[in-house]
Computed example of a mutant assay.
Amino acid sequence: MTTQAPPEGTGTAGVFAALTSLETALALLLEKLEPVGAVDLALDLSLGAVAAEALPVAQGLPVADEATADGFAFSAADLVGASSYSPVAFFTEPRRVEVGCPMPGGCDCVLDASLVECRDGLVEAMAEAFPGQGMRRAGDDLRVGGSATTPGRRVSPIDLLIARRLGRTSLPVRRPRVAIVNVGNDRHGPSAAFVADFAASEGAAIAAIAMTPRDLAAIGAAIDRVLADGCDLLVLVGGTGRGAKDHTVAALKSRAETLRHGVALRPGGSAAVGRIAGLPVIALPGTPGEAVAATLALLRPVLDRLSGRRQRLTSTLPLAGKIASSGGLAELVLLQHQGAALAPIATGTFSLESLGRADAFLIVPGASEGFAAGMAVEAFALFEAV
C-alpha cells in the first residue's frame, strides 16, 4: 500500500512521491519471520534477554522446613495459653534456630528469644505462637512442577534470583544478533550508537558495528562484510535521504530481493525496509529524532518477533491535550505523565529535549483523525526497565 506524500516542508516524508504505509512496511519485515533459536546464556549475561522456555522445578524449595526468624523452635500446641502472667514451663531446653536453619523434628513455629527465659535448667515460654510462625514449609518458595521463568518475558532480576536459588548457572534465552552499519560521518555516530544501545537494552546481541563513508561502493562492501559474518537483522543508519551523498538505498537496491524506500511515518519517513536473502533489513535516517522514531516504529517490532517476546504491556490513560492527525501518515507522539493523564509533548519532530522528557509514546494510524483531549489512549513506555 502506498500513499501520496504531503507537500514539501511538512517533514522528511515530503521529499518522496509515494510512501509505503507503516502497516505494509511492517508486514514486509515480519512476514514468515520466526523467533531465533534458543541459546544457553550465563546468568550474568541474561538480564534483559527474552526467556526461551519455562524451566520446570524438579525439586521444591526449601527442601525441608526452615526457620525464617531467629529464636527458639517449638510445637505451637505446647505453647497454648502461654503469657507473661502465666508462662509455660519446659524442663528440656528448646532448640535455638537462626534464619535458614532446618527446623527440628516435631517443631512447627519459632518464638522470639525475648519471649523465652532460661534459668537454672528451667525454660519458660511467655507467649503463644501459631503453626508456621517464624518458619517456611518445605516447597513454600518453589513447588515441584512449577516454573522458574516465563517464555516470552524478559529475564528480570527476580528470575535470576530464582535461577541462582535453584543452583543454575545459565538460562535458555532468545537473543537476536543485530548488525549495524553506520553510514556517514561523526554527525551520525550518536544515532548509530543509540541503535546499538537500544537493541542491547532489548536483549539483542550486537553482532557487528561497521563504520563506512558515504560512498556507494564502501556502503556495499560494509553490507557484504557484516552479512558474511552472520546476523539475524541488518540495520543501516544514515544516508537514507535523496541528497547527492545519500547512497544507502542504492547500495541496498542491488542486494535486496524486496525493498521499499520511504515510509508513511512522521518522523522517520525516509526510512527503508527490505529483505536480503530472507534477512530483514532496516535503513534508518541518521538525524537523531528521526532515527529514534523509526526505531520505535520499525526496529522494535522486528526485535520482538525475533526474540519471541510476548505482547508488550500498555498504559491506558486520558489525554491532557488533543492530538491532531496529518492524514495519510502514521505519526509518533511523545507523551509525558501529567497526574493521571498523558500530555502530548512532541508530534512530527522530536528534539533531544522532548525525548529526554518523554515517558511514553503512541502511534496515530494514518487513517485516524487524531484524538480529542480527555480521550483514553493506549500508550507504550518509551523505554522499559527490565
Rank of each mutant, 00 (worst) to 15 (best):
A320G: 11
A277S: 12
L233A: 02
G289F: 03
I282M: 15
S270V: 05
L233G: 01
P267W: 15
G230F: 00
H261C: 11
A293D: 02
G241F: 01
R225M: 13
I282L: 10
R242H: 14
V226G: 06
A320E: 01
S326Y: 06
G328V: 11
A244W: 09
P280K: 08
R310I: 00
L299W: 05
I323L: 10
I282Y: 15
G243K: 14
L303P: 08
R242M: 13
V235Y: 13
L296Y: 03
G238L: 10
A293I: 04
K322V: 11
P267D: 15
L233V: 05
E290Q: 06
G243F: 11
T287L: 13
G262H: 08
L234W: 07
S326D: 15
A251N: 04
A264F: 03
P318I: 08
A251S: 10
A277G: 09
R300G: 08
L236V: 03
G262L: 02
S325L: 15
A264N: 00
V281E: 01
G289C: 12
V302A: 01
G286A: 14
L313S: 09
L284A: 06
R260M: 06
L313E: 10
S326P: 08
L299H: 14
R309C: 01
P288I: 07
D229F: 10
L306C: 08
V292F: 12
A244M: 15
